[in-house]
Design a protein around this nucleic acid. Structure first.
Lengths: 210, 210
DNA sequence: ATGAGATTTCAGAAAAATCTGAAAATAGAA
DNA sequence: TTCTATTTTCAGATTTTTCTGAAATCTCAT
């Protein structure tokens, strides 16, 4: 039950531990920016996850060397993502935060959020565009038909992805993990015969320029 | 075979068509920034995909209103992603570009690239961190054990994801589509019983504060 | 209610990403 | 090879995102 420190902890080991944590935090933070979340937000999450210790705003500020405002906003987003939660310690007025400790729940949260922010808006836009574009009649010009065809394909592809995400990446449940294991065993589909340029046979350039 | 224009195309319809294309391009471009690729790169791809027409640098510049340098760099990235390809028209010195027309191939490319840029570096870092951190002995302090445990969990989770991606998102083949359909049918896993705070029983704060 | 401590907000500062434009490099035709 | 259309490169400009810090707001024990 860890008191002043943990058993057997030499200062030497403690330093290595912190070094390792910092490296993890840095890597996770770097990824964060690639995921479209701020570096700090990712770092706060990494810190809470890798240490497993609930921390308050000041502790996070000190450890990551970032401003109070930044921590406040990052924490709020993480709470929305549901990958950390508030903890109150009796007799302490501060709020502490602790990370969800199950990796899969974390991965599900990431998947969910990304779909929400990336795919849903696209699907919405696709619907609007479909309505707005010239409707298909008995003898529409071929480029109008092609447009609808492509819009439909994109909608179908991303639609399927959204459905799957809702199915497997709910905030609770072993969905993602199940899916992953299922797929790991499944045989992979045979390559399709290459059909480049499904649409533009030969080269449909020339004309239809301006 | 479309000559001066397409059959039945009134100027009215043509305008609507272009309007719809532009909206698609704009949406795709917006998504691009969320995917960590530049807006222009996404727009170039959208333009080539939605029109289906091979275009040269100047045509892309004119349609998207961006600089030559920007188009050049975007096109290069798209070629690396393998979602567009070069086309040469005999008797024309310019290079034309045309988009892969199969949505799934496009989705696979996106998945592949994201894994390469986001997950692979993380896995590399995790290995390094594992070596660098205090090694586990017969009676290591509990926080060192916990660190290794968490590093392993993360590595395992993302490792599985990488494996799946390599399996299902190769540049050829119907892998992703197969996987998606497979999953769409599969029964979803039963929710796990909630086990919050797996790690920190009670509240392991106090002490170990430094 | 009061007030000390804690959190949120947000305008402006700082940093990062993206884009431009023109010079340099390249590549095809003759 | 030479000439020229085309492409690439990259320093600096622009735009976007993120961060800071302090004032405003909130909240809870008394």
């Amino acid at each position: 039950m860890a008191r002043e420190s943990t058993p057997n902890s030499t200062p030497q080991i403690k330093a290595q531990l912190i070094e390792a944590q910092d490296r993890f935090i840095a890597s996770w933070g770097r990824m964060g920016s690639v995921w479209g979340i701020s570096r700090t937000m990712a770092e706060v999450h990494a810190l809470l996850y890798i240490t497993g210790v609930p921390m308050c705003t000041d502790e996070i500020m000190d450890r990551l060397r970032v401003s109070r405002g930044n921590v406040s906003m990052s924490v709020r987003s993480l709470l929305e993502w549901a990958v950390i939660e508030k903890v109150r310690l009796p007799g302490d007025r501060k709020e502490y935060f602790q990370a969800e400790q199950d990796v899969w729940s974390m991965l599900r949260a990431i998947a969910r959020e990304r779909i929400k922010r990336e795919v849903d808006p696209l699907l919405g836009a696709l619907d609007e565009i479909g309505e707005l574009s010239p409707q298909i009649g008995s003898n529409s010009p071929e480029d109008v038909i092609a447009l609808h065809h492509r819009l439909d394909e994109v909608r179908e592809g991303f639609g399927l992805i959204t459905t799957l995400t809702h199915k497997f990446a709910g905030p609770r449940g072993a969905g993602l993990q199940t899916a992953a294991k299922l797929l790991a065993k499944a045989p992979v589909g045979r390559p399709t015969k290459r059909h480049k340029a499904t649409e533009s046979k030969r080269n449909p350039r020339r004309g239809s320029r301006s």
